Computed example of a mutant assay.
Amino acid sequence: MPGLGTASLRLARPSRDLAAAGRFWRDGLGLRELHRHTSEAGEHSLLMLGLPDATWHLELTLDPTGALHPTPTPDDLLVLYLAGPVPDDLVARLECCGGTRVPAHNPYWDEWGVTVEDPDGYRLVLSTRDWNNARALATS
């Protein structure tokens, strides 16, 4: 498929509490609020977070009926490759903003990073690995 390798990516997830999730991803991780829509008369509320120069962003949605709840498993991960040590102050900030440091379901991620669960139960892995090295391992 032409262009798939350079396509932009939106990761959409339901949330129980957009304010709590926003604190974690925006104030904790440092993503910027790119767009917010507050529901009116049965519409979904959403919060889009990312970085202005990135080709991806995270969209958190709130179902107006309250019927849809996040159901992440311990292996539903968003992995950020930092190519170096995970800053202790970043982990502390994520915890202060509603995150919980947890052991990884797959011990590989404990060896190569830190796993923090967001207020909805989704897991963020801050990997010490470099993306190019991780890609090379996956293709060898």
Rank of each mutant, 00 (worst) to 15 (best):
V79T: 13
F24R: 04
R36P: 02
L126V: 12
P70C: 04
R10C: 02
G66M: 14
G84K: 08
W56G: 12
P52Q: 14
L47Q: 06
E117C: 09
A138W: 15
L11N: 14
L82K: 01
H37C: 09
D75Y: 06
L62M: 03
N106K: 07
G5K: 03
T73L: 07
A136T: 09
E59V: 10
P119Y: 07
L80T: 12
L49V: 07
L62T: 00
A20P: 04
W109R: 01
E111Y: 03
W56K: 12
W56T: 14
G22Y: 02
A7F: 07
G121W: 05
Y81L: 08
R16P: 00
G30I: 09
L11T: 11
R13K: 08
P119K: 10
V79C: 11
R23P: 01
N132Q: 15
E33M: 08
L80G: 15
T115Y: 03
A12N: 10
E40W: 04
A67V: 00
D88S: 07
H69L: 15
W109S: 00
T38R: 09
A138N: 07
R36H: 15
D110A: 02
R13Y: 13
G50N: 01
V102R: 15
P2M: 08
S8N: 15
R36V: 14
A54E: 09
T38L: 02
G121T: 09
G66R: 13
A20I: 06
S45R: 12
L126S: 05
T38M: 04
L82C: 04
T71M: 06
T38A: 12
D53W: 05
L124T: 03
D118A: 01
D76H: 12
E111A: 10
G66P: 04
T128K: 00
S8K: 13
D53H: 13
D63V: 08
M48C: 11
E40H: 06
A83I: 00
G5R: 07
R123L: 10
L49Q: 01
R32I: 02
T139V: 04
R101W: 13
W131R: 15
G113Y: 03
W56F: 13
L80I: 11
T73R: 13
E43D: 14
T100Q: 13
G113M: 10
Y108M: 09
G50F: 00
G22V: 02
A12M: 08
A138F: 11
A104Y: 09
L46M: 04
